[in-house]
């Protein structure tokens, strides 16, 4: 089946993280009349699943994850309008606002979590590092997020995770969001003490918690 070969090539382009190649194959598939939903579900999604599995087996690492996620996002910019035209839309599992807390500039763990969340179908807004507590809350409201995920590496910066929860409470919106904490200095005991909804030691833990929070886990 010619379509099967195309799906295979779409999947391979995701796995190799080649954004330009993926875009070219997406255009080719559209020209051949393949439905955008099939391009995503039968071509790109299996590639994303494979990337996630290889990452879990330590066969690939953060750069490959980031490139696969970027390739995916590039293709979705082309496919999403077509999906809407066809009366559908992109199926998002949920929305996450992600960042490293104020005073902390460590990004690698956060980036791994971000890439894995995207792989799992979440729409992620990454605020970056050194993010004020109020910025997490403001962006969560703008982005209509389901989850706020805050990372902190240092024992002198984890108090900022509590500050996020205090800001949510001060605005009266605490119950709207699932707050997940992680990073080198966080522990389950800490998460419980500040009233967080979950603690993930690893990126895999964070994704499992996020899926559970949106009823998919």
């Amino acid at each position: 089946m010619p379509s099967e070969a195309l799906y295979q090539r779409l999947s391979e382009a995701i796995i190799s993280g080649d954004r330009n190649k993926l875009l070219a194959i997406v255009e080719e598939a559209l020209r051949e009349g393949i439905a955008p939903s099939d391009i995503i579900e039968r071509g790109m999604s299996p590639g994303m699943r494979e990337v996630g599995e290889r990452f879990a087996r330590y066969e690939i690492y953060l750069p490959e994850m980031m490139m696969a996620a970027e390739a995916w996002e590039g293709a979705m910019k082309v496919l999403e309008p077509r999906l809407l035209e066809a009366g559908g839309g992109q199926k998002r599992v949920g929305r996450v606002v992600l960042g490293t807390v104020k005073g902390d500039i460590h990004s690698i763990g956060k980036n791994i979590v971000g890439a894995m969340l995207k792989m799992s179908g979440f729409e992620v807004f990454d605020l970056g590092v050194d993010v004020a507590a109020s910025a997490f809350v403001t962006k969560a409201e703008e982005f209509e997020a389901d989850i706020i995920a805050a990372s902190a590496l240092m024992s002198t910066t984890i108090p900022q995770q509590r500050s996020i929860i205090e800001h949510l409470e001060a605005r009266g919106v605490r119950q709207r969001y699932c707050v997940l904490v992680g990073g080198g200095s966080a522990t389950q005991e800490w998460a419980d003490s500040i009233g967080a909804d979950g603690y993930g030691r690893t990126a895999g833990d964070a994704v499992a918690l996020a899926l559970k929070a949106v009823g998919k886990g």
Partner: peptide, 9 residues
């Protein structure tokens, strides 16, 4: 250096 981060394996 983080093994699994930008430096890879």
């Amino acid at each position: 250096v983080i093994l699994g981060g930008l430096a890879g394996g």
